[in-house]
Design a protein around this nucleic acid. Structure first.
Lengths: 183, 183
DNA sequence: GTATTTTCGGAGTGACCACTCCGTTTCGAG
DNA sequence: CTCGAAACGGAGTGGTCACTCCGAAAATAC
């Protein structure tokens, strides 16, 4: 059993790290995380032995949360709406999370460990949403998961740039029009 | 008049820097550039006084080249085709050029100096291509330059990720379908 | 061919950052 | 309250990287 103050610190570090890496990308420093969490540097490294481990913990947390949200949508009564809603949600959510978008971009390749598992889970759940939306006639049946996922990644990364919410939404609308079945 | 060997080095450094930053992003080291160019570090810094200056030179060069290509397309007999061709060309071209895509993403905001001028020129020329394509009836008239440019940036950044050419082309096709006028 | 001047190379320098060591503090069981 | 164990903070360490200094080398002028 670990001490309760240690558990609290561990949790706080995770939360702060998500903010810090979200704002500054992978380049943000561990000291910044420690400072903003109100702990010493050593405490961060005690809980997460390397910077990579900390980043992995952040990503795992985030992928898992997104996958959970996607799964919840997967039960919806309107699969078309569910698909497009989740797409828009994830893009908007990534707007302040560079690290996530960066990691997503890498995810095809090099990730390993728990984060890779969580990433795959997210990927697969988006696949389910897509299949359901296609079955319901809301999304063209001649598009496949790889290109849809690529669009999702691209829109997420673009969303981080100086692009405001209005432009982001208009961009999404164009993508959605490209994905939707023709009336 | 500068010595001819110095001019040759200066040019070679620019070319190599484009490769190195293209492959490794802004994080790539100046020493790497020097090594691959076959010159000493001091030589790089003599020609480009800071790393930022070197990066700016690379970006300026690249933006100017892209803008030139866009301008050439602007005279084409089929403006719709010209617009979509240039869009696809730029995305494919960015696939091996992270630094460019990153800089494009920033371009709304913080760039300054010659690179900013070149970036704006590219932006404006894309605007011309868009307007011509719309006038020719190839692109929906209810889309505007900001969202089109956002899509261009997003697609360029996504293209760098592990996404292969086939998936990239299928993603582009979806975007193009969203941009095209309905039959 | 020699003198002069430009350019070169690479060993330094200082700042930054991931990560470690250890004396001190704090928790919680008895 | 007391005491041992668990956890903490922050000064230190090694490595990396942007950038500088200066003696050596090479190019043009004559």
């Amino acid at each position: 059993m670990s001490r309760s103050d240690a558990q609290a610190n561990r949790a706080k570090i995770l939360v702060v790290a998500e903010e810090v890496f979200g704002a500054g990308g992978e380049g943000a420093s561990t000291e910044e995380v420690a400072r903003r969490a109100g702990v010493g540097i050593a405490t961060v490294f005690r809980h997460y032995p390397t910077k990579a481990a900390l980043l992995e913990a952040v990503l795992t947390e985030r992928f898992t949360r997104l996958a959970g949200r996607a799964k919840a949508e997967a039960g919806a009564q309107d699969p078309g709406r569910a698909f497009f809603d989740f797409f828009a949600y994830m893009v908007a959510d990534s707007a302040s999370k560079i690290a996530i978008a960066e990691a997503l971009a890498e995810a095809g390749g090099a990730l390993d460990g728990p984060a890779a598992v969580a990433s795959r889970e997210l990927h697969d759940t988006v696949g389910v949403l897509l299949a359901q939306a296609q079955a319901a006639g809301a999304v063209r049946t001649d598009v496949d998961l790889p290109e849809v996922y690529a669009l999702l990644i691209g829109a997420s990364r673009a969303a981080y740039a100086g692009v405001g919410p209005e432009v982001r939404d208009r961009s999404l609308k164009i993508i959605f029009d490209g994905l939707a079945t023709r009336p």
